[in-house]
Design a protein around this nucleic acid. Structure first.
Lengths: 325, 325
DNA sequence: GTGAAAGCGCTAACAT
DNA sequence: ATGTTAGCGCTTTCAC
């Protein structure tokens, strides 16, 4: 591996000059620049990130914490983040938050001196470590407490979704929340529904709000089970909101297995607008989230100097109408 | 951040001794060990990976190259790899291989001094850089030429799949390959089908082998389009093999949109056995691949010393029967 | 059994 | 406009 030193010798200058040419900072004569560039090319020099990171005492790794790597929603996010990070010379590393090994992982992140952490494991990860990371200058995203926040604003999407049920004469929507009860107040989709159900002329009945144990269990299984139980319970319903498209996949299946026709007997609306939800049968009407914007925002929040502790970035949503309503 | 030096001072020993205690290599008196451990705990020492990596001139990053991050199959793999890597103190970083920026990315990987590269972008990535990486001691997986290989052996799965079509009286299976024609000889599923179709009593007709432009286009779209065209072409068929479950999703939809009943009119078999293919309508019969074993193998191949240039690890497959045949 | 010391390759403050 | 140099924190050889 070629070092800066070797490039310097070849070009007949000092390492500092080589550094200036490469970083583009500081004064360098055209002549020196020329020689350095030539040497870099001839020797095929590649900067050693290990060394520069040590020197700067900071790596260019952005850690992404996920609880359910298989949920395609997260993958949309990761895809966007990888793309954005690449542009800014950063890399994305994945960490699975399972069971109770959170501690060990956070410890590692400190060891690696990651430049930032994006917590996509909102349902599992309590972030009591917050302060330690801040002290080390590691940017945290979505780690409770204060700090910059990217929030997906479901208001418009939920409004349109509820309006769409109302318009088609639905009165008794169920809500497949899928997460545990104590987490419900956390989620805007659920609270919006609870607070506004009556405004849309719905008959509110808490037995139609279904909790589950996502992400311990796969989203589609949770959706299936919850819908099956709802049917078995005999509580009347004529439509279903699902917290995510994957839960909706399970709901669709449960409905199908029990002889319900969608959308004739029951309407279903999902959330996320995954790239293949138009291929569900029937094609799923769902709340679209600008996942690319969300992923980009995460990376930008970590890398941009301009982001302060109380910056908030909102991601918009809207209903995509297909054939399940 | 606490350094080894500080721990050494606190424990009243040298940094070398601290190193010995922590790494567990070399002779250390019980007494010294005791003191060091105490100091480590009190000071909350965490080794600085940046420094140790520089010293060793090798990072503990395993780079994963993907072309289609949204394909759940890859995510199954990544999940397994993250799990395995964590156990061995390594981290998984994702790199998207899009368009023609491969060069830049490979260049970066050299800069980062990654300890290995797992190429999951077999359909896009020519690996002419092979030698440079080897020189640098970077382990490569699935990068053409020689080198250790993890191969998914579809023989048994394909055999059972073809047998299942035969048994149910199908004679004219189509094969939705989805990839471009020149890549077909590369893929065992396709070649197995071509070579054995007649043995199973099928009527072989090359017009039923459908190529596409995956991964440029999403798998489900490719499946949909190809199936739509097949129907439009008028070439008779009574069953469809799909290269992947996501393509099968598109095929199922195209069949549905055109009034075909599955499995009554047409049987469909997918490949991969994603965690949610049992939720397709109808539930998809598919070839199961041991994705966990595959992911583990990749990581092991990179980290294990015992792996030589010509090691080959086979991953088994088998048919999972559901309701699409 | 333990310690001293030489770098790994880079950056940046300082000197020229 | 350019060069010198002092570390970043760790590992590891070598000497005691």
């Amino acid at each position: 591996m070629v070092t800066k030193q070797e490039v310097a010798e070849r070009a007949g200058v000092s390492t500092a000059t080589v550094g200036r040419v490469i970083s583009g900072k500081g004064y360098v004569s055209a002549e020196a620049r020329e020689k350095v560039n030539a040497a870099v090319k001839e020797l095929n020099y590649r900067t050693n990130k290990l060394a520069s990171n040590l020197r700067k005492s900071k790596s260019n790794i952005i850690a992404v914490l996920v609880e359910d790597l298989l949920n395609p929603y997260y993958m949309h996010l990761v895809e966007a983040m990888v793309e954005r990070a690449e542009q800014q010379d950063c890399i994305i590393s994945m960490f699975a938050i399972k069971d109770r090994d959170v501690r060990k992982i956070l410890d590692d992140l400190l060891s690696y001196r990651v430049c930032g952490i994006v917590n996509l494991a909102m349902f599992t990860c309590d972030f009591s470590w917050y302060d330690i990371f801040l002290e080390e200058g590691i940017r945290l995203i979505n780690c409770t407490k204060s700090g910059p926040k990217v929030v997906v604003d479901y208001t418009e999407g939920m409004r349109q979704a509820m309006e769409s049920f109302r318009r088609t004469g639905r009165k008794r929507p169920a809500f497949v929340a899928g997460i545990e009860e104590w987490l419900m107040p956390t989620d805007m989709r659920i609270t919006y529904f609870q607070q506004n159900a009556e405004k849309y002329g719905f008959e509110y009945d808490s037995r139609r709000i279904l909790c589950g144990n996502y992400p311990m269990e796969k989203a589609h299984n949770v959706g299936y089970e919850l819908c099956r139980k709802l049917i078995a319970s005999g509580v009347p319903f004529d439509s279903v909101f699902c917290l995510t498209d994957m839960m909706a996949l399970g709901v669709l299946r449960a409905l199908f297995d029990n002889g319900y026709k969608v959308p004739h007997d029951v309407s279903v609306i999902g959330c996320d607008d995954l790239d293949f939800t138009g291929f569900f049968i029937p094609a799923l009407t769902t709340i679209q989230v600008d996942k690319k914007a969300e992923g980009y925002a995460y990376v930008d929040f970590i890398l941009d100097e301009g982001v302060s502790e109380d910056t908030v970035r909102k991601i918009g949503t809207k209903l995509v109408e297909r054939n399940s309503v």
